[in-house]
Simulated scan of single mutants.
Amino acid sequence: MDKNRKNKGYLLLEILICLFLFSVLVFVVSVFLKRIVIIEKRKKEDQIIYENLHFTGYRVIEDIKNRSMEKFLYESISDNIHVRQNEILLKKEGKFYKLEHEKGKLYVSDGNNIMDLGKKTVVGKYDKVEFKRIDKLLVIILEYKNNKEIKILNLF
């Protein structure tokens, strides 16, 4: 009778091998998915940084384009815009505006008088902000976390 009887069940060893293979497969897939999540998160952060750089550059350019063309005296120089490496001073709609990069942040301040521009307001965090005036061109370089935005504007 034992010879005619067939075992149709699984051995404990077969079940353990299947569980081991399944756990290895789940581990490999989870590592792969974790990497995808990290990459997507970094892409999203980079996109937000790039958008902020682009928007700030655009707003600065628009404000400079719409400035008053009347000259004013600042540090013994008469011009309608004063540019240094880390600051810009301009006049728009009867008010003076000063953009400056200091301690990793870009600030804007405004006022009716050059000597009293009021409180600085933070525009954003940046690793490096440079303003360069080359003849009739203004070059603005904004950098943050290996993202760089360069804007060039004809001042006249």
Results as ranks from 00 to 15, higher is better:
Met1Lys: 03
Met1Arg: 05
Asp2Ser: 02
Lys3Pro: 01
Asn4Phe: 08
Lys6Asp: 04
Leu11Met: 04
Ile15Ala: 02
Leu21Ile: 10
Phe22Asp: 11
Phe22Gln: 03
Ser23Glu: 03
Leu25Asp: 07
Leu25Val: 01
Val26Met: 13
Phe27Ser: 14
Lys34Leu: 07
Arg35Val: 07
Ile36Asn: 15
Lys41Cys: 08
Lys41Ala: 14
Arg42Tyr: 03
Arg42Cys: 00
Asp46Asn: 15
Gln47Asn: 11
Gln47Ala: 14
Asn52Val: 01
Phe55Glu: 06
Thr56Trp: 05
Thr56Val: 03
Gly57Tyr: 09
Tyr58Leu: 10
Tyr58Glu: 08
Arg59Asp: 01
Arg59Phe: 00
Ile64Gly: 06
Lys65Pro: 01
Leu73His: 08
Ser76Tyr: 08
Asp79Leu: 07
Asn80Val: 07
His82Pro: 13
His82Trp: 02
Asn86Ile: 05
Ile88Gln: 04
Leu89Asp: 04
Leu90Tyr: 04
Phe96Asn: 09
Tyr97His: 10
Leu99Lys: 06
Leu99Glu: 08
Glu102Ser: 13
Tyr107Thr: 01
Asp110Leu: 09
Gly111Glu: 06
Ile114Val: 14
Asp116Ile: 03
Leu117Asn: 04
Lys119Pro: 04
Thr121Trp: 00
Glu130Ile: 07
Phe131Asp: 08
Arg133His: 01
Ile134Gln: 08
Asp135Cys: 04
Leu137His: 08
Leu138Ile: 11
Ile141Ser: 12
Lys145Cys: 04
Asn147Pro: 01
Ile150His: 05
Lys151Met: 15
Phe156Glu: 14
